[in-house]
Amino acid sequence: MLREIRPAIVFIVALTLITGVAYPFAITGIAQMIFPYKAQGSLLERDGKIVGSALIGQEFASEGYFHGRPSATTAPDPNDATKTVPVPYNAANSGGSNLGPASKALIERVQGEIEKRKQENPWAQVPADLVTTSGSGLDPDISPEAALFQIPRVAKARNLPESQVRQLVAEHTSDRFAGLLGEPRVNVLELNLALDRMAAR
């Protein structure tokens, strides 16, 4: 039995070095060399300043931007560290609402979101993704329907013809991978950056 102690120590140390140090460092080195943009988090810059990541959603509240999905992320309460407060799109603490299907809190929250959305576009049906929180709280995408739903509000706030905004949404809609995997989607941050660029022209 004691004969197994020496290999136990040697193999723990050696395999820690191989799989826990050499492997992640090697991958980091290679990735930084061949995919530097992705390896650093797909960061988007404007005027030399980082405005976010193409893969991470952010909070949009103003009328002139497309809005992402509601987010359930939180942060520690600055007044009481044992509690948390809602901080939507907190990219340093991802997570979902974890409310069950028969939860009163869930139904009330969704109802509130629907009423808010109905005000901007009373005629269309509110898409499901626009009133539900994502698993990560950082979903960068909305469905094409959720983008179309917001076109009247955005166009009005920006004094643009709806057709022009619709064109922009179409350009930023990605299809399923190979027409097969996943769902069609619109990246909200990239769409809003394009909106700002269009306004600047």
Binding site: A31, Q40, S42, I50, V51, I56, Y65, Y89, A92
Partner: peptide
């Protein structure tokens, strides 16, 4: 990584969102 997963030893990224808020992005 090619699909977009970060692989860096650098610190968390401080971004200023389009609406001017601060967003700390863990990488």
């Amino acid at each position: 990584v090619w699909q977009g997963i970060p692989q860096t030893l650098g610190p968390y990224v401080e971004a200023t969102t389009l609406e001017g808020a601060k967003q700390t992005i863990a990488v």
